[in-house]
């Protein structure tokens, strides 16, 4: 390797400029800007976001543009293959699969988002209080969470679905009853780490109340891991909904969800495989999109991953 050519002028002292000395070279970035910059580089995660936005839009306009609705039976046109009239074909009752698919998108996305949001609220409140106060409070609150955590999630959901009247909200409630624990644990861990930081002490010595400290200082600073957990909760909820609907415990007919559509299609899989293809494809696509977004967020927000 050749050495760079050095000239005498390279060894002369630089001029001292007091104003220049105070100048900060790069533009200052906040935590979120920095995270967004890293997130943007992740092509796969961006693809995930685009997919979710598209699915969201289609869930609203998909039904109207097909010219069909999700519940009209038309037995003369049952089990038709995809065509100009029915873009994704029709199911065993002659319902338009295209319209049903997008209606199912609405239900699946709604359940996923709702379940994740409720988990988020309960988890943040429970976890931050336990983590912040520590000691006996923490002990008791986390013991409750531990016992609930030992209860197999899907079994509880199934039991609740057996008991409660079938419906959208029942499904959401059943899923959140044990779903919040994971979130609470993560928030607790984060808050415990942060509560002895100097800025918390500073704020406390200025007379800030516990509530203010918790929700103004501690919780916002744990947002990174919380967001990551949130995005990874959504595909889980969507999967659970599909799983339960597949078992016949999901949303009641004539509401369409991808799970019920797949389960209906299973009976005639041998003759009309396309009926399974569409709902199954969109379940996979949605879960894929949320998973890659979650991965991208973890890489962008987790300081340990910074390079």
């Amino acid at each position: 390797m050749a050495l760079p050519q050095l000239k005498d002028s390279d060894f002369e002292p630089l001029q001292i400029n007091d104003e220049e000395a105070e100048k900060i070279a790069g533009e200052s970035t906040s935590y979120w800007k920095d995270a967004w910059r890293r997130f943007r580089k992740n092509k796969l995660a961006l693809f995930g976001i685009v997919m979710i936005v598209l699915l969201g839009i289609m869930s609203f306009i998909g039904g109207p543009i097909s010219g069909h609705n999700y519940f009209d039976n038309d037995l003369l046109n049952a089990n038709k293959s995809p065509s100009g009239e029915h873009w994704f074909g029709t199911d065993n009752l002659g319902r338009d699969i295209f319209a049903r698919t997008w209606y199912g998108a609405k239900i699946s996305l709604f359940i996923g988002l709702m379940a994740a949001l409720i988990d988020l609220v309960i988890g943040i409140i429970w976890g931050s209080i336990a983590g912040y106060f520590g000691g006996k409070v923490d002990e008791y609150m986390m013991r409750v969470a531990d016992v609930l955590y030992g209860v197999p999630y899907l079994l509880v959901v199934i039991l609740l679905m057996v008991i409660l009247p079938q419906g959208l909200w029942t499904l959401i409630i059943a899923m959140t009853i044990t779903g919040w624990i994971n979130m609470a644990r993560i928030v607790r861990g984060q808050v415990m780490q942060l509560r002895s930081e100097e800025y918390v002490m500073a704020s406390r010595s200025l007379g800030a109340s516990n509530t203010r400290l918790l929700f103004k200082h501690l919780v916002p600073n744990t947002m990174g891991p919380i967001l990551v957990t949130l995005t990874l909760t959504i595909p889980n909820a969507i999967f659970t909904e599909a799983f339960l609907s597949f078992l016949g415990l999901g949303v009641p007919a004539p509401l369409a969800s991808w799970g019920t559509m797949s389960s209906d299609a299973l009976q005639s899989l041998q003759y009309y495989p396309f009926q399974l293809f569409f709902p199954a494809f969109f379940i996979c696509l949605t879960m894929l999109a949320f998973n890659v977004i979650g991965d991208g967020m973890r890489d962008a927000l987790d300081p340990k991953e910074r390079k």
Binding site: F239, L269, I283, C284
Partner: peptide, 22 residues
């Protein structure tokens, strides 16, 4: 791996059943 996480087991099962068995 990403595909494996995104494809629910019951879809995997029906697809496998359709292709290899039927």
């Amino acid at each position: 791996a990403v595909l494996g996480i995104s494809v629910p087991s019951f879809i995997m099962a029906t697809v496998l059943q359709y292709i290899f068995a039927i």
